[in-house]
């Protein structure tokens, strides 16, 4: 068992997971945009750069599926196009309702937090009550990283263990570590504004939870982590803190 295997037990990917919604761009492109985007979102979609349009759309669709499922389970019959997803000035997505006078429903929708990620033909999104903490998802294609890049985002312990691995294992674990750090950085709403090197993980029991330390002398924060390999090609991570 390598250090990484031991630290991050990778789950087997299950399509049924209710933690997040995974959607392929191809599937979303079969659906008319005005069936799930509001008029304002269509105007935003028109402004997205061509290379990112399809994935942006898939991210919206995935997040809307999550929130509508939650609202329906609470007895609120809501259509996907009634919910609007916007990004705040740091890029963090949030929900609003397009047309509703139901103050209870408005408060409920505003009270959910979402995280979105897209990569090479897929999007994932997850939604959680913001009073429960922070949420971050990430999907990343398993890839070869430049040595300088790995050295820059891994802490010393991670890098020392990484260099002992076979090349293919290195690609997998570097992608896993990057994805875990990116999901965490989204959960704290900062993205790369916080340098990923300063994040370290330590394992707790039960399985699949770890505590992380942000910058050496800060307190460790407990987190729930789902991390799996999808189609042997992608790493998908979901972190709740």
């Amino acid at each position: 068992m390598s250090y990484f295997n031991d630290l991050f037990v990778l789950d087997t990917f299950t399509e049924q997971t209710k933690l997040f919604e995974l959607i392929s761009v191809d599937d979303v492109l079969k659906i008319p945009v005005d069936s799930f985007l509001s008029a304002y979102e269509i105007s935003l979609y028109d402004l997205v750069v061509a290379s990112k349009k399809d994935e942006w759309l898939a991210g919206r669709k995935a997040a809307k599926k999550c929130i509508v499922r939650i609202l329906n389970s609470h007895g609120h019959k809501t259509e996907q196009k009634d919910i609007e997803i916007r990004n705040d000035d740091k890029g963090v997505p949030f929900f609003t309702l397009t047309e509703s006078t139901d103050s209870l429903l408005i408060a409920m929708v505003n009270g959910y937090t979402s995280s979105i990620s897209h990569c090479e033909g897929f999007a994932v999104a997850s939604v959680m009550d913001s009073s429960e903490g922070g949420l971050g998802v990430d999907i990343e294609k398993i890839q070869k990283f430049k040595t300088g890049t790995v050295e820059a985002f891994m802490n010393k312990q991670e890098y020392d263990e990484y260099v002992k691995l076979e090349p293919l294992e290195q690609n997998k674990w570097a992608t896993v570590v990057w994805s875990l750090k990116e999901a965490y950085l989204k959960a704290i709403k900062q993205g790369l504004r916080v340098h990923p090197k300063g994040i370290s993980f330590s394992k707790n029991t039960p399985k699949n939870t770890f505590s992380h330390i942000v910058h050496d002398n800060q307190k460790a924060v407990p987190a729930s982590v789902y991390c799996s390999i999808y189609k042997e090609e992608f790493v998908i991570t979901c972190i709740k803190i």
Binding site: V49, S51, K52, G91, C119, Q143, F145, K146, G148, T149, A152, F153, W178, E182, G191, L192, P196
Partner: peptide, 16 residues
């Protein structure tokens, strides 16, 4: 800049 980047890894490498 973040619009020009393909993804966060490219963005990170630019910052470095």
């Amino acid at each position: 800049i973040s619009t020009l980047a393909k993804d966060s890894i490219q963005l990170f490498e630019l910052l470095l």
